[in-house]
Simulated assay, not measured.
Amino acid sequence: MRTVLVGGGLLLAPIVAQAGPLPAVAEDTTFVRQSHRRAVFQFDQRFSILNGKVVGINGVKGGIEWRGRWRAGLGVYRLSGGVPTRVTQPVGTPAGTRDEVRFRYLAGYGEYVFIGNPRWELSLPLQVGIGNYYTKYTFPDGGVQRTNNQILYLVEPSIAAHYRVFRWVGIGAGTGYRQVFASGELPEDQISGYIFFGRVKLFLGDFIKVVRGHERLFSQKGLERK
């Protein structure tokens, strides 16, 4: 407080201290804060080494993300090619017959983002699924025969990362393990195993906002460092 003489009178006026520059606030990379829900969609290409062969598992999945930290949804997967079996062929099978194990499954997934910012993130996905497998026989004369479908169950814990190229699309990769169970006799061929995957991730909610707002499709808006 200071005293100022004005026209013969006294005026008490507070002294306002000159504030210095505010300290810089470190960027929070704990997780991406989003108060609203938004739809997410992924082309989820997975690979495994089964019976000594690298095979692809094609999949798509979609779901809902909320608070920028939790995701849940459904996915559909199918083995892109057969896995050569290690099982002895049935008696009477013609010489030169090619036999392959094939499988497909439907999976529910949950995903927790434990660190990230608007540009990138690390997360822990978990998939639980149900599907079927069968063996396909291709005979030398071109004929095809397949066994009856057998039910299988699976659990796939993994760790994943993605990087947003633009606000509405990103690329990612990860690794994990597939553990397969069966309701009946377990397949003699290897279906359980390590997985590694790449993905293209489309953020549908952000894409719709960009289109409706007539924004530049390939801008970096919302991804710049603060």
Rank of each mutant, 00 (worst) to 15 (best):
G7T: 06
L11A: 10
A13G: 03
G20Y: 00
P21S: 09
L22E: 15
A26C: 11
D28Y: 08
T29Q: 13
T29S: 06
T30I: 04
R33E: 14
R33A: 12
Q34H: 10
S35V: 07
R38L: 15
F41A: 12
F41E: 06
F41M: 14
Q45T: 06
S48G: 02
L50N: 13
N51I: 04
N51Q: 08
G52S: 09
V54L: 05
V55A: 13
G59P: 08
E65D: 04
G68N: 01
Y77K: 00
L79E: 05
S80H: 02
S80M: 13
G81V: 01
G82Q: 07
G92P: 03
E100R: 06
R104V: 09
G108I: 11
E111I: 02
R119V: 07
P125F: 10
L126E: 12
I130V: 14
N132W: 05
T135F: 13
K136V: 13
P140M: 03
D141Y: 02
G143H: 00
N149T: 03
N149K: 12
Q150M: 11
Y153E: 12
S158L: 03
R164P: 01
V165A: 10
F166P: 01
G170Y: 00
I171R: 08
A173W: 10
R178I: 09
V180I: 11
S183T: 13
S183K: 07
E188M: 15
D189E: 09
I191Y: 01
S192M: 05
Y194S: 14
I195G: 04
F197M: 14
K201R: 12
L204S: 15
G205P: 03
D206R: 15
D206Y: 04
F207D: 03
V211D: 10
G213L: 11
H214K: 05
E215G: 01
E215S: 10
G222F: 08
